[in-house]
Design a protein around this nucleic acid. Structure first.
Length: 641
RNA sequence: GCCGGUGUGGCGCAGUCCGGUAGCGCAGGCGACUUGUAAUCGUCAGGCCGUCGGUUCGAAUCCGACCACCGGCUCCA
């Protein structure tokens, strides 16, 4: 028979050949790397028989698809091991996920996994791998499937619920079996357990069955699996790197902020150094906004309930709002959003088309009642400072505003060293308000902006807010992690709810369009992302201390003070570490504080008016003229590089 | 909110299982040393062991509740 390959070549194979045979016929290397195949567009096992005219692609382990198969198979072996070690365990689902896999279990008698169990399970898994057990695919009828898994209530529910992703079709279910154990599974799997091995179990956590918080809490074991021990080691190294960069840890080490229990969860205080970094971020943001034609406004933290009744927040998000306070017969709420207040500023006068676009900006702190379990350092807090702006414009200004806005957003993000962007265009969800034509227009305007700016984006169908389509901007940080940062939303609801209008050139009343935009998103969260992105080593323009002067001996201190004066006179942030301990110790401290520059001054320097420059992550340079260094650092700071 | 884990000087940890009144390192104060590129030496001080309650002659240690944090789940205008 003849089959065709992805490069459109064809290959002759004996009848009855499998995808695995095909891989072997192409080459030993491919056969070794193969984990599954795609036959006529569908994933299949290597053991699947091929037919005349099939289009076949081999999936190798070092691809995303291949790792997916490896992880799926490893999850399967983990469940097998758990069932061996914990008789009576019920197993639920075990899919591959980004960087790994998990499997959910319910143990008899409500027993719990502990950390030691992970080691035992992993050891049993390695035995199963060593036994080279084949994965055998079986097709059962629905009834056979129900009988086979009669003692596995979660599997029964999957079969009854007909979930093709989990191996249950209307009339048939697919099962993968190895020695003494079987799982309902759509596949494909690797041919045998011996193909697995570069895995590690990582943690145990609780998870709701089917993701429903009203259903059973299962125990989930997370693991990771890769195509080679080297790839596994690299992944584990990335995890360590992420831990090293953890902003919560850096926040303590660098004395930037903390969460006093006396204040309460999710409510941070910023220390002087953290406060300075934050000020620098905000100052830069304000400068850019001013240059881009924004007006600065300020609004209070509390409001009568009336405002949020009009805005609809009480109806939609009361659960996420802080509870009300009664004062003098009125009910007040901490604000969960700034937009209604900005709208009131717009409405304080009758507006003409000449006033538009009106761009309002505020660092507005809002309060949201986040459930206790979701709080996470500065990335998920209850007191959130949004760098919030609302742009009110005439309908014919919408596309132009969005385009310049998106370009503005990217420009500011680039200054913070974030250069890899991916956007999402989130369109109308099923539950939404407003006219289809309006949605269409707003979504088109967003699309135009994306195209004009030339950013890569994908469409997230139905992911918009109930009142608006939006663009979410994601960035990749220094170690490749993806963060959702900025959001641009075209609001179709608020202008109506607040009955906003402007008088057009035609002397009739029109409804303005409203764009919500958060650039940092939350200042606290953005601060955390920057800390992790830079691993605490902030660029000079954001460093609380940009240079520290170290006199070699006490008798150099006068000169050190003079150097400090030169730096400070040039607007640079610097200090001196007196010679009360050996130079090496003082250098070490400066390095641990991740200062951009250490300047050592000794006899030679006093003589020649120079400094010894020890830059973060660079080579020591002796004998640099003070003026030269000041100019250099000032340029670096001014260019925000 | 739910599941599991953790909470001991500013920070990092030991002690908790098998109750008998707390220890180490770093940081800090003081003194000496006077230093040329990642840890100078000595000395001193600092903790009602997250909080409240219970058991006990006696609780950091056992039990309960609460608070906070960590890993997930759910949620995220």
């Amino acid at each position: 028979m003849k089959v065709s390959l992805p490069d459109d070549s064809t290959r002759e194979l004996p009848d009855g050949s499998t995808a695995g045979d095909l891989a072997a016929s192409i080459g030993r290397g491919l056969a070794k790397a193969a984990v599954a195949a795609v036959v006529n567009g569908d994933q299949a096992d290597l053991g699947a028989p091929l037919h005349e005219g099939d289009r076949v692609a081999i999936i190798t382990a070092n691809t995303d698809e291949g790792r997916y198969v490896l992880r799926h198979s490893t999850a399967h072996v983990m469940a097998q091991a758990v069932c061996d070690l914990f008789p009576g365990a019920k197993y639920a689902i075990g899919p591959p996920v980004e960087d790994g896999f998990y499997y959910d279990f319910e143990l008899p008698g409500g027993a719990r996994f502990n950390e030691d169990d992970l080691g035992r399970i992993e050891a049993r898994m390695r035995e199963i791998v060593g036994e080279n057990q084949p994965f055998v695919r079986e097709e059962l009828s629905r009834e056979e499937g129900l009988a086979r898994f009669a003692d596995q209530p979660f599997k029964v529910e999957i079969i009854e619920g007909v979930d093709p992703e989990e191996g249950a079709e209307d009339s048939a279910v697919s099962v993968y079996r190895n020695e003494g154990w079987a799982d309902l599974c759509r596949g494909p799997h690797v041919p045998s357990t011996s193909r697995l091995g570069s895995f590690k179990l990582l943690k145990v956590a609780g998870a709701y069955w089917r993701g429903d918080e009203h259903r059973e809490v299962l125990q989930r074991i997370y693991g990771t699996a890769w195509e080679s021990d080297k790839a596994l080691a690299e992944h584990l190294h990335r995890l360590e790197e992420a831990e090293r960069r953890d902003h919560r840890k850096l926040g303590v080490e660098l004395d930037l902020f903390h969460f006093p229990p006396e204040i309460g969860g999710g409510l941070p205080v910023f220390h002087p150094k953290g406060g300075l970094i934050r000020k620098l971020m905000e100052d830069y943001s304000r400068d850019e906004h001013e240059a881009a034609g924004y007006s600065f406004v300020w609004t209070p933290h509390l409001s009568k309930s009336t405002l949020f009744e009009i805005s609809g927040h009480l109806a939609w998000y009361a659960d996420g709002m802080y509870p009300p306070m009664e004062m003098e017969g009125a009910t007040y709420y901490p604000k969960p959003m700034n937009c209604p207040m900005h709208i009131l500023i717009y409405k304080s006068q009758s507006r003409s088309y000449r006033d538009l676009p009106m761009r309002l900006f505020e660092f507005g702190t809002v309060y949201r009642f986040e459930r206790s379990g979701v709080l996470h350092g500065l990335t998920r807090v209850r007191g959130i400072t949004q760098d919030d702006s609302h742009i009110f414009c005439a309908p014919d200004q919408l596309a132009g505003e969005l385009t310049s806005l998106l370009a503005f957003v990217l420009k500011v993000l680039r200054t913070f060293g974030l250069t890899e962007f991916e956007a999402e265009l989130a369109t109308r969800p099923e539950k939404s308000v407003g006219e289809p034509a309006e949605w269409e227009e707003a979504t088109d305007a967003l699309r135009q902006a994306l195209d004009a700016v030339g950013i890569e984006y994908k469409v997230a169908e139905g992911e918009g807010a109930f009142y608006a389509p939006k663009i979410d901007v994601h960035v990749r940080d220094a170690i490749g992690r993806r963060w959702q940062i900025s959001t641009l939303q075209v609001d179709l609801q608020m202008p109506q709810r607040f009955d906003m209008e402007f008088v057009g050139a035609d002397n009739t009343r029109h409804r303005p369009y409203m764009i919500h935009r958060a650039l940092f998103g939350s200042v606290e969260r953005f601060f955390a992302i920057l800390l992790e992105h830079y691993a605490g080593a902030m660029p000079a323009w954001l460093s609380p201390v940009q240079a520290r002067v170290l006199p070699v001996r006490a008798d150099h201190e006068l000169y050190a003070a003079a150097v400090l004066g030169r730096l400070q006179a040039s607007g640079l942030r610097a200090d001196v570490a007196e010679a009360d301990e050996p130079l090496g110790g003082r250098i070490r401290k400066a390095k641990l504080e991740k200062l951009p520059y250490v300047l050592v001054v000794g006899d030679d320097d006093v003589e020649a008016g120079t400094v010894g420059v020890n830059p973060r992550g660079g080579e020591v340079e002796r004998g640099v003229q003070v003026g030269t260094f000041v100019d250099r650092l000032r340029d670096e700071v001014e260019s925000k590089s």
